[in-house]
Simulated assay, not measured.
Amino acid sequence: MKRLSKLAATLSPVALLASCGSGYSTEGGSEAVSTPAPTELDFAITEHGSFNEPWASAFLPGTRMLFITEKSGSIKFKDLASGRLGTVSGVPAVDYGGQGGLGDIAFLPSEAGRDSSDRTIYLSWVEAGEDDTRGAVVGRGQLLCLQADECSIEGLKVIWRQAPKVTGRGHYSHRIIFSPDQQYMYVTSGDRQKMQPAQDASNTLGTIVRLNLDGTPSAGNPLAAQGSPSDQIWSWGHRNLLGIDFDASGQLWEIEHGPAGGDELNLVKKGANYGWPVRSDGDHYDGANIPDHTADDGFEKFAINWTPVIAPGNMVFYRGDLFDGMKGDLLISGLKTKALIRVEVDGEDAREVARYDMDNRIRSVIEGPDGALWVLEDGEGGRLLELRPE
């Protein structure tokens, strides 16, 4: 076990503005005042091996088996009870390259009481199309774990496809979250670096879709009367959404990459349009201006906006009791910032309260069964780290 001293940064308002950059902004959104972290935390860090471009992880509910996706197209699992590292067969072929490949992994919490040898598994990945096109998909199958170091996926079937498939290899997003009652599945669908389709609700690029657990559009979606694929859409006007989760009160939040500046944390509302690419508090990469959000622009406003960017990898609301004072806070994995970013949420308002230096790009952070944090570093050789209070 390694102790990383002074990992936590207890930030004064001045220090926080310096760490975020003078462009840290809440203009156009709800108030997000920077305040010091309530307590200083030291993390005890234990390494649990390294992986090839790890992208997402999830615990099999009711067990201590942690499954990890690798972007190039593999799934491995760590059995924390025995320490064994296992492999998963039956993984789909993926279109690997750029930001694409194997993506998210999700299990149904309601199946925690079932035999761990037969569970429903949801995966997202990038699927090739015709004429050099590709797009994100979500598949569902059965996970069978009949040996100590080997599991297999049986009957995997694509139940949702991003529409349309387009050229390029960026902004797939394809994060998966289930509603607290597990009646619905929400999937983030990025703009695929095409920008304008995010304002065109006749496709699913730049949207969050709400689906039944079998991948069909959910009844009551705001654009249901427009037919397929509009009937899948819950919100639109998004860019590249890499984190999504429900808070303790049942509100849905997402975090997305802005262009050159303007990363956003948004409270997701039914039928809301978040403005991309018509409005952003960032600019185009070539320096061309994008109009900032204004109070009367007709678009839903962010809760927090970051310039310079934090480049989020994912996010999770902390529900446990292991870390004093953290329950209910949002934790964001930072790629560019090489940090964990902690955000306090109060109703519809949010504010960054701390930033914990991790020395490496962080792709993912999730909460374990007992409240420990499980962190994946980004890239080749990205380590799996267990964080506990020191």
Rank of each mutant, 00 (worst) to 15 (best):
L211Y: 00
T26M: 10
L66W: 13
P36R: 07
C20M: 10
A128S: 14
I332G: 00
S228L: 08
A37V: 04
V138Q: 00
G21I: 04
K157V: 13
D357V: 12
G83T: 02
N266I: 05
W160N: 07
A15Y: 02
D42R: 13
L242Q: 15
R279F: 06
A128H: 07
G381P: 09
G28R: 01
G100H: 12
G250M: 05
L144P: 01
K338C: 09
G86R: 03
A295H: 11
V94N: 05
V14P: 11
K270S: 14
D149P: 12
G139C: 06
A260D: 10
P369V: 04
K157Y: 06
K338F: 02
P277A: 08
G261A: 03
G298W: 11
V278Y: 00
T26R: 12
V88R: 05
D324F: 06
R319F: 03
A260P: 10
G250C: 10
I153K: 03
G28H: 03
V365I: 13
K327V: 04
T26L: 07
I75P: 10
I159V: 14
Y186D: 00
A136R: 00
G206W: 08
T307L: 08
S30M: 10
I362P: 12
G98S: 02
G368Y: 06
I153M: 00
L223V: 09
S179E: 03
S5A: 15
N240L: 02
N240W: 02
A219D: 15
G103Q: 04
P389H: 12
D214E: 03
P13F: 06
C20F: 10
D324Q: 14
Q162W: 01
P92M: 01
R239P: 14
L85P: 09
D118G: 12
L11Q: 02
R279C: 03
Q142V: 12
L385F: 11
M1G: 13
Y122N: 05
S12F: 10
A58V: 03
G170M: 10
M326P: 12
F107D: 08
G313E: 04
E254M: 09
A295T: 14
T63I: 07
I332L: 02
R84P: 05
R279A: 03
D95P: 02
I362W: 04
D247E: 02
G328R: 01
P36H: 08
L340T: 09
G113T: 15
P164Q: 00
P197M: 05
P308Y: 08
E150A: 15
M65F: 14
F67V: 01
L387S: 08
Q99W: 04
I341R: 13
P312G: 00
T120L: 01
G155S: 06
G23C: 11
A311Y: 09
E386T: 10
A9S: 15
L85S: 12
